[in-house]
Nucleic acid binder design. Structure first.
Length: 458
RNA sequence: GCCCCCAUCGUCUAUCGGUUAGGACGAGGGAUUCUCAUUCCCUAAAGCGGGGUUCGACUCCCCGUGGGGGCGCCA
């Protein structure tokens, strides 16, 4: 039975790199029918915060990465917060002490390597250190292959203030929680030799390791960090991204299903995901590609789903708080569905639809200049308003409106386009928007005519 | 400084010794369309360098170079 874990520490915002590590663990668990454990590594009392912890829970849930064991989910290997596992650590530390594999020095407890010892001056760190002659530690990594590294210095496992360090608790918990596969970022690869030595010292089986490549910042050198542009998961949540788009994008950063497929359902990703498909080289984060995927998902959303998400976004943004108040539900729905095929993301919606909800919309000066400079736009608008005024023009379907305009254009020896631009400018103040006829239908005859008359009078 | 990992278009990647080196994002051009988008078509764009191994290397090996990571009483 495969057991994997995601072990974040709540010392900062939840970023893309952590999310991808969580995702790969989750995918592997789901692919193999294994168990996904969430463990909170909150041993750093100074930097931990409950607020950051909630961000982690929130982001994981938003991404749909549900955990089978962990805080809020229960499980037989708890507690799942390291701050609550101290008695367990004490037991394990005592085992090491009893076995002669740990000793006290300067008030701290050190892990003892086996081998011949001698002192040497380390010029780089500018201090004298004790080196231990040891055999190389062998790591069989599912992604890197066989990696050898020499661990040649004893290291601290319990600080002088009594708190155990990361390397120790990480290994103890993996043993106690019966973790079979450790899937984590490559930044841990060099530390893995410490962990392997600890597993051996405890007489525990060494889990399989899979060190996944890192995500590099999109501009400049180095790996992505919390401070980088677009690095935070909550930012995409706030901007109304479709979580599935982020999952899809992240899954393809450092993994490929073979072949050319890119847009995949979660079920399909789970079915195809496996460790041998994970790349060995670091990947650069590309916001543009993510945005493109998000657009594809927005376009594909079922109408009800789209409306629900859009409304939630509007509510969070307080879009209607300053204006005349919340619009009519049915009207809002019509506006949203009219806009869905045209936008690149939910976040574009408020600006894209603003003129639907206020009579106080601005007329874009540049567009006005361009539109009013050719032909006889005011005459055209006058003609159009006079036609739309007639009750015989059915305003309930796009087609009827379109036919009325086309009929007018034909009678004048003109085309639809000769009326479109000026009508759009008058009614929306811009040259960007949904289909004109759909716009008219949704706004309704009275509002459309009123706007046209106001524009003609100005 | 020492140790570890990595190396195909600008970016994400396919290729598991023999291909016109393919796809996607982005870029440029075009078509469709009532604007703007979408969609569709086209174009430009890559095997880091040097040695080997082999009939034949992007692919295997070595050395450089470059990039990344680690070397805390942080995680």
């Amino acid at each position: 039975m495969i057991r994997v874990r995601f072990a974040p520490s709540p010392t900062g915002f939840f970023h893309i790199g952590s999310a991808r590590t969580a995702l790969f663990n989750w995918l592997y668990a789901r692919h193999t029918g294994g168990t996904f454990v969430l463990r909170i590594e909150d041993t750093d009392r100074e930097r931990n915060s409950e607020a950051f912890l909630n961000v982690i829970y929130d982001s994981l849930k938003w991404l749909g990465l549900n955990w089978d064991e962990g805080p809020g989910a229960g499980g037989d290997h708890g507690p799942y917060r390291q701050s609550e596992r101290d008695p367990i650590y004490r037991d394990y530390i005592q085992k090491l002490l009893d076995a002669g594999r740990a000793y006290e020095k300067d008030g701290a407890i050190w892990f003892k390597l086996i081998g011949e010892r001698h002192e040497i001056f380390d010029a780089h760190r500018k201090k004298t250190v004790v080196k231990v002659k040891t055999a190389p530690t062998e790591i069989n990594d599912l992604i890197r292959g066989r990696v050898e590294r020499v661990e040649d210095e004893d290291f601290v496992i319990v600080r002088s203030d009594g708190s155990p360090v990361f390397h120790l608790v990480n290994v103890i918990d993996d043993i106690a929680m019966k973790i079979t596969h450790v899937i984590r970022g490559e930044d841990h690869l060099s530390n893995t030799s410490k962990h392997v030595e600890l597993f051996k010292a405890f007489g525990a089986p060494v889990p399989h390791f899979a060190h996944i490549p890192l995500i590099l910042k999109q501009n400049g050198p180095g790996k992505m960090s919390k401070r980088d542009q677009g690095a935070l998961v909550e930012e995409y949540q706030r901007r109304g991204y479709i979580p599935h788009a982020l999952v899809n994008f992240l899954s393809l950063l450092g993994w490929n299903p073979g072949g050319d497929r890119e847009i995949m359902s979660v079920a399909e990703i789970i079915r195809l995901f496996d460790l041998p498909g994970v790349n060995q080289s670091n990947a650069r984060f590309d916001e543009k590609k993510l945005a493109h995927m998000n657009m594809a998902y927005v376009l594909a959303l079922a109408p009800d789903d789209f409306v629900t998400r859009a409304k939630a976004f509007f509510a969070k943004q307080n879009t209607f708080s300053q204006s005349a108040g919340a619009p009519d539900e049915a009207y809002l729905r019509d506006v949203l569905l009219l806009s869905q095929p045209k936008i690149k993301g939910i976040e574009d919606l408020p600006a894209y639809t603003a003129y639907f909800f206020t009579e106080d919309y601005a007329i874009d000066a540049k567009v006005r200049e361009k539109t009013m400079s050719k032909g006889a736009p005011k005459t055209r608008l006058r003609e159009l308003a006079d036609v739309l005024k007639q009750p015989s023009v059915d305003f309930s379907t796009d087609l009827a409106i379109e036919e009325a305009i086309k009929k007018l254009a034909a009678a004048k020896g003109l085309g639809f386009g000769d009326y479109q631009a000026v009508a759009r400018l008058a009614v929306s103040g811009t040259n960007i928007g949904p289909n004109l006829t759909g716009m008219f239908r949704v706004m309704g005859r009275d509002r459309v005519l009123a706007r046209m008359e106001r524009f003609l009078a100005a």
